[in-house]
Design a binder for these strands. Sequence first.
DNA 1: TAGATTGTTAATCGATTAACAATC
DNA 2: TAGATTGTTAATCGATTAACAATC
Lengths: 210, 210
Amino acid sequence: MEDKEISQAVISRLPRYFRYLGELKDEGIERVSSQELSDIMRVTASQIRQDLNNFGGFGQQGYGYNVGYLYDEIGKILGLHEEHNLIIVGAGHLGQALVNYMNFERRGFIFRGIFDSDERLHGTQIRGITVRPMREMERFVKDNDIDIAVLTIPKSSAVEVAEQLVSCGIKGLWNFAHVDLQVPDDIQVENVHLSDSLMKLSYNLAPHDR
Amino acid sequence: MEDKEISQAVISRLPRYFRYLGELKDEGIERVSSQELSDIMRVTASQIRQDLNNFGGFGQQGYGYNVGYLYDEIGKILGLHEEHNLIIVGAGHLGQALVNYMNFERRGFIFRGIFDSDERLHGTQIRGITVRPMREMERFVKDNDIDIAVLTIPKSSAVEVAEQLVSCGIKGLWNFAHVDLQVPDDIQVENVHLSDSLMKLSYNLAPHDR
DNA sequence: TAGATTGTTAATCGATTAACAATC
DNA sequence: TAGATTGTTAATCGATTAACAATC
C-alpha cells in the first residue's frame, strides 16, 4: 500500500499512537484532532499529522480523526490484524516471564513452543506449553509456521541459535541476548538490551546534565 | 566535567561502545583505532570519534585509543564506577526475572528490596531478598539510600506508585509498565515498553518494506 | 457559508558523515 | 622524519516544526 520507505523513527512512534488511541476509544471518545492528541501525548500536532500521512489520509479537514478508525488502521499497519506464531528459546526466568505475560496473546502474538538446552526442564510446562529440547527446534519452526523466535538465552549461545533459526526459515528475531546478531537483510531483528537501557538511566542520574 | 548538553542519541550509543570495548579488552587487545572499531561495530568511524569527543579527547593521534582506558572512561561516564541501590516494585514473573539476572549486580546495580501488593508473597524470598508489603516502600527508600525503582507492576497502579516514589525522593524510575509516567523534570524515567518493541518487529515483518 | 482542521510544502533544526589540519 | 590517526570544522543528510492552501 505504501511507496517510499518509512523511517524507523516514525515506526517507533506508531505503537504509542496506538496505545493512546486505544485509551481514547475505551473512554468512548469518537473523534480527536491532531491538536488534542498533541496535548495528551506531548508531541507536536505537526509531527502527528506528518507521521500519519506517511500511510495515507486518515483524517478529515475540519473534523479531525475518527478514533476507532484510526486505531484500527494503525493496528493493521503494525500487523496486529493477523496472528503471529512465536517460539521462546530459553526457558529461564525471563523466558517464563514473557510466556506468562498475557497481553502479547491479546494482540495476536501466540506462543507455540518453548525450547531449552537444560534437559531437566524438558517435558515441564509453562502456562500449558511444553518445554522441548533444542534439537527439536528446527523441525518445530518448519512444521508450525513460526514467524518470530524470542531469544532469552545467554549471549554465548545466541549467535549459534540465531543461525539455526535463520537456516530453517524464521523471519523475525526478538533478541534479549546481549549481543548483536548478524543476519541476512531479509531477517528482522528487534533487540531488547536491558542492561543498555539501565546504563542509559544511570547516565541520566549522574550529575552531568543540568 | 562537561559543558554543553549531550544528546540522548549519543548517550544511547555509549553502552554499545562499552560492550564492544569490554570484549576487545577480554581478548587482550590493547589499542584500537576508530576505523577498526567502525569495522567491528558497523557504524562510521566519524561517528565514533564525534561521539567520544563529546566527553573529551580519549585518543591519541597516530595511535588510536587505548582499549582499557577508554573502557574505564566510558564506564565512568555511564556512572558504573559507583554502586546504585535499587528496589523492585512488583514481584511477578518479570520482577523475579530481573532480580535473578545477576549481570546487573556485576555492573553495580544492587537490588536492595522487593515490594508487592499481594500479601501471599510477603515474607517470601527471591534470591535471598524478602518481598515486603507496599506500605513499607516509602520508609525503605528513605532509609536505604535507594536511587532507582524498577516498576514491574500493571499500568493500572504504576502512575500512583510512581507518585509515591517521587514524593519519597527517588531519582530514577526504570519503568516496565505500559504507561507514560508524568514526573518532575529532575526525575529520570527510562521506559522499557516490551509490547511496543514487539509491535515494531511485527511492522518490519509485514510486506510493506522491500 | 464560516470555522475548523487536515494534508502537504517549505523552513528550521539537529544529527551524521566527510574532510583535513593538528599532532603523536 | 614519515605515517597514522585523532580532534574538529564544514558539508550533507534526514527529521522535526511551522505555515498555509485545500477542503470538509
